[in-house]
């Protein structure tokens, strides 16, 4: 069966195990820096990138991403501006899947259908909306019309039944929230992650990659998670490393390369980058 292009691209990105998916918001520390950083992440080992759409009230995010997206808004970043940035990244030759991550209100305000069409046209490959559980996602699913996937999230609190229900319509990959809590670096990989991943794996249609995010701060934590999951999502640590650097582009390149190396080693094979 022929997959729609974004789905095929995502499937290809997960050929590398584990896939590395950093998060970065458009507009931080400046609009230009964020594009440079994303380009550098893509060029140095990221397999997919979660591209953040800044929102005034990011209630699933911890202080670092709150701060970064606040700065981005102060820098004048808008929803159309984010979509334009996706197109610009494509223009720069960034070919890996770019998954938009944003809260629902700006999407709803833009118009779900108009947003999805513009996002696909700009070259986005998927959508993560952290405040849109399965119960409320029909409107956005309709707007997407199968052109790119709405990524489903599973939390440690999600029951097996609920996991099965959510997974029945999941596409692209599944986003496992490693801990109950907001985004942000944690001291260690949560205990019980293996059981959590195993439990979800049993409920998931075969072949749907499982990505773990929230709290992964260091390459060694990433490597540990990478042994369990098909993909490792790193947000806060990436935003902090890039945002605190005088040379965001360089910092992004180093960050991606270091994580990539640790993930490859953990998997026992050094994949060609």
């Amino acid at each position: 069966m022929e997959l729609p292009m974004p789905l095929a691209d995502i499937e290809r990105a997960f050929k590398r195990k584990p896939a590395f998916m950093p998060y970065f918001p458009i507009g931080y520390p400046t609009a230009m820096d964020s594009l440079d950083a994303i380009e550098a992440l893509a060029g140095n080992g990221a397999d997919l990138i979660e591209v953040g759409i800044p929102f005034s009230d990011p209630l699933a995010d911890g202080p670092v991403i709150q701060h970064a997206t606040q700065i981005a808004l102060q820098n004048g970043v808008t929803v159309p501006g984010v979509l334009q940035s996706i197109a610009e990244l494509r223009g720069r030759g960034v070919g890996i899947p770019l998954i938009l991550m944003g809260y629902y209100n700006p999407i709803l305000h833009f118009g779900p259908k108009a947003f999805c069409e513009a996002a696909v046209a700009a070259g986005a490959d998927g959508l993560i909306v952290p405040d849109l559980p399965a119960e409320e996602s029909a409107e956005l699913e309709d707007a997407l019309g199968g052109k790119m996937p709405l990524i489903r999230m599973i939390a440690p609190t999600t029951s097996a039944d609920r996991t099965r229900r959510i997974c029945a319509t999941a596409e692209g990959f599944l986003y496992l929230v490693s801990v109950t809590g907001v985004t942000g670096a944690r001291e260690s990989v949560p205990t019980g992650l293996r059981e959590f991943v195993d439990r979800v794996r049993l409920a998931v249609p075969k072949g749907l990659p499982l990505c773990v995010g929230f709290g992964i701060a260091t390459p060694s934590q990433g490597a540990e998670v990478g042994k369990l999951a098909d993909g490792v999502i790193v947000g806060t640590a990436c935003v902090r490393a890039v945002g605190e650097s005088a040379d965001p582009k360089r910092a992004a390149a180093d960050f991606a390369a270091t994580f990539r190396k640790a993930l490859d080693l953990s998997h026992g094979t050094l994949n060609p980058v």
């Binding site: 209630l59 405040d131 849109l132 559980p133 119960e135 939390a155 999600t158 029951s159 609920r162």
Partner: peptide, 19 residues
């Protein structure tokens, strides 16, 4: 009812849905 006409609903992170 979870909704009042077109208003209301449960727009929260998945972590909170079971609660």
């Amino acid at each position: 009812f979870t909704k009042f006409g077109a208003y209301g609903g449960q727009y929260v992170p998945e972590t909170l849905m079971p609660a």
